[in-house]
Nucleic acid binder design. Structure first.
Lengths: 239, 239
DNA sequence: GACTATTGTCGTACGTCGTACGAGAATAGT
DNA sequence: ACTATTCTCGTACGACGTACGACAATAGTC
């Protein structure tokens, strides 16, 4: 048992996590696969939310013993990273860019939003992400290429990528929370009663005015597009 | 035991959570206070992160039995909401606006960022927030007032508020993750080695170029200001 | 002052979580 | 056949959120 320094505290070496390594030539043949396990975890999160992703439930889903999962991921946090990179595989990458970087950037953001709506746990999960996996890197490569015509240097393009991602994540997190199934009609009514009570106390005139106006619920797609346009056009204005 | 419908599933009635209620005229006098408990929870989160906020540790910090906390908050999720609203009390509110809505909005965003840097758990916590408490509402009132001169209708002003908040939260979450104490030097070196390896595989030319350039770490304050200017100026361009 | 209703405190206990440990099974080189 | 290696997974431990209910303290009523 050499116990090389890779298994020390502070996180696993990203290389041994992400870089493909050849199957060992000795020892028992694996009965499961990392892909299958991660896929099961993603399905679970999609269907029942992040908090349903427990080692026990994932193991049950793939038909493994709980502790067998630890042969494929050193801990649950890492499993979460693998989930993130798996769904990053659904994002466009390797596609050619049009040369219109504003249009490309908006398309990128739209596909990010679509991905997060498909996987509503993603915005919350991204908040604790550590090291980008291969699919995330391929997507980053795509975005950086799309931004080539924007005349920004390397660091600035990276910044823009981070900012757009953060923005979309924040927006979708809010969007998903609003549309959540947890909003029963009585919960909604209670909320409305509370806000009305606050608005009626006289110390929140602006809030009262906003509450009084605007009753239609606002189309989420249109709202997102509007926000995105603002952000990207803001980028544009700087050049 | 009437068990009125307020204690049903789907969350507590916001009114009985946020609206101040008179002390009951009968029964034992409370030994603790909601404020003290929430303050202890915030201190804990500030010092050791959100995952250190457990009912047991909060109780120990205020000198209460664990189950006593449940007299002040119906569950842990609600305690988290109370924490969020407590730190929202550190945001500017009730202050007069200058009339220059762009400057005011930028000042608002800066104070939000400062607050999130003081309480690094806040971006993550905000993702699951349900109902705005009084301090959050006061802050919203302030922002809405600042936006009065922008010529937007009620719903649009609310949108802008939500967008700026989402933007700042996303940005600071990223910022905090980068500067996290978990980045030991060996961890950092391992990350660099991994990225170098990826860049060297020839399939990530843009990434390689970015990695090759730009070695100075970039001032976080300046970066935030730049991004914020972009966003707000983008808003401006729309009018 | 005794009685009772009400409210707050908190010890115990239950089910669930992540995961350390190590015994056993399977595989491949010798 | 033997051995080193790799994988599987039952058991167990400590920590978590919180339901339950016994008990303590308060205030109104007689």
């Amino acid at each position: 048992m050499p116990d090389d320094e890779a298994s020390r505290a502070g996180g696993v070496d990203p290389r041994e996590l992400w870089l493909s390594q050849a199957r060992p030539r000795r020892g028992r043949r694996p009965a499961f696969s990392r892909e299958g396990i991660v896929a099961a975890a993603v399905e679970l999160a999609d269907a029942e939310g992040l908090e349903a992703v427990t080692m026990r439930r994932v193991a049950a889903r793939v038909g493994a013993g709980v502790m067998s999962l630890y042969s494929y991921a050193p801990d649950k946090e890492t499993l979460l990273e693998l989930m993130i990179d798996r769904v990053a595989g659904e994002l466009p990458a390797g596609r050619e860019v049009t040369g219109d970087w504003r249009a490309d950037l908006k398309a990128v953001a739209r596909s990010q939003r679509a991905n997060m709506l498909r996987h509503p746990w993603l915005p919350a999960a991204l908040a604790t992400r550590r090291t980008p996996g291969p699919n995330t890197l391929a997507f980053m490569e795509h975005v950086l290429a799309a931004l080539r015509s924007a005349g920004l240097d390397g660091a600035a393009r990276m910044e823009v990528f981070a900012q757009v991602t953060a923005f979309v994540a924040g927006h979708v997190a809010h969007e998903v929370a609003q549309a959540s199934a947890a909003w029963t009609s009585e919960r909604l009514a209670a909320e409305a009663r509370y806000l009305a009570e606050v608005a009626a106390d006289g110390r929140h005139p602006e809030l009262a005015a906003v509450l009084a106006s605007s009753r239609e619920p606002a189309d989420p797609d249109a709202t997102f597009t509007r926000f995105l346009d603002r952000l990207v056009d803001g980028l544009d204005a700087e050049l």
